[in-house]
Design a protein around this nucleic acid. Structure first.
Lengths: 203, 203
DNA sequence: GCAAATCTGTAGCGATCACTATATTTTCTC
DNA sequence: GAGAAAATATAGTGATCGCTACAGATTTGC
């Protein structure tokens, strides 16, 4: 989705140097999109926060959706990828899923105006089909990773169990964006984790 | 929030008759807001769907947010108030909550472009503080009703249990808006219902 | 009939939306 | 230094946003 002739694929070394740090810019945009959602953050505001004018913005990112895609990728490759973090600590399916949900309960509550999950809620209700599609791809990739992992122990029911985990995370993300604190989310994470463990064992 | 000098408080009978049906207009607006969210539906589109021009729109509803409030009220007073419907059938707390969640699993999946809960997700990520506040009031009222009902059997843990129910419903609404079907939502509703019942009994 | 009251259509308000045409500045290769 | 390449600033594009001034149409009370 990122055009191949954008800055990161720079071949020649000639030309004026960029006056701002693209990583910092993506980080800032990620925070803004996360806090208020894709549509509610305008290019004018992004430019002001980044300290750049529109032509620099479009030369660097191609479009608002292009910057959103970079923000999504940055988000998913960092600490927000709670399933990867839970999986890295090892253990069986139930243990990893319980750990994932508890990590969500820690990560999702509001901090500095940011709450919930950017991938799950960043493009929610957006009028821009491109932003919605970008978020959907990331969502589906995340659920697919969880499903494949669950399939190692319960191949027949992996789809339904992964759907359950996804819905629990969507609920926690939405609740966090509505103001839920870590205590409330932890209760849900524990209850959902136990429900998952029982469903996995009993099926 | 509805100004007292709006049409429903008409005292005199003089003046030109309204050329459209306000109930139908609110119903149409409700459907549009529900399908795409508050910000994604513009006044121009509402006017076109309703077959009225801006001055008629503002004379009747005061503002876009005024129409949204009417849509929310209409929504909450109809079949979408699944907790009231579940409660009306009687039974204990666990039974009513389980029924509520199953009703959500039936109601939330996409039908004619509409999915999830208007109150929970209609103003999600909206840039309009008024729309957000209106939805928040309705959300809190719904959770309060559930909490008060649960308090009849578990006064100490009513808050946490009601939070759990709210988060489950938010997850189901968000998932439905992402395309989840009744089967997926029913699995979650059953698991969440069982988790709720156990938590209620064991606490 | 006439005035008050109410709604409707025409037309357009200022603000913001994402985005861009153009020219200038900077930096490299040669 | 010449020329190519890339990023910049100035300024503004058309479209859409929610909303409104104004005059005409319609219906009532008197």
């Amino acid at each position: 989705m990122i055009a191949t002739d954008l800055p990161e694929s720079r071949t020649g070394s000639r030309g004026r140097r960029r006056s701002f740090d693209m990583d910092e810019a993506v980080e800032t945009a990620m925070r803004l999109f996360h806090a208020r959602g894709y549509d509610a953050v305008g290019v004018a505001e992004l430019g002001a926060e980044l300290g750049i004018k529109p032509p620099s913005f479009y030369a660097a990112f191609g479009s608002k959706a292009g910057l959103f895609e970079r923000a999504l990728r940055r988000y998913a490759s960092g600490e927000a990828n709670i399933f990867a973090r839970a999986q890295a600590e090892g253990g069986g399916v139930a243990e990893v899923i319980e750990r994932t949900l508890l990590l969500a309960a820690q990560l999702y509550p509001e901090r500095n105006g940011v709450a919930g999950c950017l991938v799950l809620d960043g493009a929610r209700n957006s009028a821009d089909p491109e932003a919605c599609a970008l978020a959907e791809v990331m969502r589906k990739a995340g659920v697919a990773a969880i499903r494949d992992f669950i399939a190692g122990e319960a191949p027949e029911r992996a789809d339904a169990l992964a759907d359950f985990v996804a819905i629990a995370m969507k609920g926690m993300s939405a609740a966090a964006r509505d103001g839920a604190d870590e205590a409330a989310l932890t209760v849900v994470a524990q209850m959902a984790g136990r429900a998952f463990r029982r469903e996995l064992a009993e099926g």
